[in-house]
Amino acid sequence: MSLVCPVILGSVRSDRQGLRAARFLVRALETRGHEAPLVDPAELKLPLLDRMYKEYPKGEAPEPLERLAALYRRADAFVVVSAEYNHSIPPALSNTLDHFLEEYFWRPSAICCYSAGQYGGVRAAMQLRAMLAELGAPSIPSLLPIPRIGKALSESGDPAEAWLPKAASRFLDELTWYAEALRAQRQKGTPY
């Protein structure tokens, strides 16, 4: 069953490594027959949050927000790719996520975290779990941490280590299960 799974990238740095993971996951999702548009804050150039999407009069939100809202309403799940900045998530990721609320409701999320070091960004992932749950898109139990991302993935997102495609496959199997289950429930109605 085909799903819509936006891949939300969290970094805007000029030498960002997360684009490697995002490209890898977009390709892995598309190989499964899913639609996986990349949500890149560097391309969106969203302003710092002053007003949430829902706070604009209908049809008056900035174009990138209108485009994202339409995509998120079609989404079955979200894949979030996060670096670890000072044991937390990047400010660009928080800003990108915080513009919306209801558009996330009743959809699962999956966290791919990464770092240049050996911990793979898991400290940021723990904070991101709480944030995604509060937004209404709770994360699946599994994470996909990618330590030493510069060696694990090429710039184009090709894996250089054998464990990564296998781990990603299990990770996406789990996300697919949750996404299909919650889509079926959303079709029956939601609590509010």
Rank of each mutant, 00 (worst) to 15 (best):
E134P: 05
E174R: 04
P64Q: 05
I111P: 04
M131P: 02
V81F: 03
I8N: 03
E103C: 11
A124R: 08
P138K: 06
H99A: 02
R32N: 12
P191G: 15
P47W: 11
P108A: 11
P141W: 00
A167K: 12
S88R: 10
A125P: 03
V122H: 08
K188R: 14
Y119V: 11
L38E: 01
L68G: 04
A181I: 02
W177N: 05
R32M: 13
H34T: 14
P91S: 11
K54H: 15
M126K: 14
A110K: 06
L144F: 02
I140N: 06
R170K: 11
I111K: 03
L71E: 14
V4G: 12
Y104P: 08
A160M: 11
A36V: 04
S169H: 11
A70H: 11
V79G: 00
A69R: 13
E174T: 05
R148H: 10
Y119E: 13
Y85A: 08
R23I: 03
L153R: 02
D50R: 14
M126E: 15
L71W: 14
E30T: 02
A77Y: 07
Y192T: 15
S139R: 04
L46C: 07
A130S: 05
D50M: 15
A167Y: 09
A77G: 04
G189Y: 01
R23M: 01
H34S: 12
A125N: 03
K166S: 08
G150H: 06
S139E: 03
R170T: 07
P64R: 05
R107L: 03
L101V: 12
Q127I: 13
Q118G: 14
A124M: 10
P41W: 05
R170I: 07
G121D: 06
D76R: 05
A116F: 14
T96W: 14
C5E: 09
L93T: 09
A21N: 07
Q185A: 13
H87G: 15
A179D: 01
M52S: 13
E134R: 12
Q185W: 14
L101G: 12
V4T: 15
L44Q: 01
A116Q: 13
T31E: 12
D50H: 11
Y53G: 05
E35T: 12
T31V: 08
L128Y: 04
E161T: 02
I89K: 07
N86E: 07
R51H: 12
E63F: 13
Y192H: 15
V79W: 04
P57W: 06
E55V: 10
Y72V: 13
R51T: 10
V26R: 11
L93F: 13
A116C: 13
K166G: 07
P47S: 09
Y72A: 03
H34K: 10
A181K: 08
L175C: 11
L93G: 08
K54L: 15
E66F: 10
A61P: 05
G189Q: 00
D98F: 13
E35N: 11
R73D: 15
G150I: 06
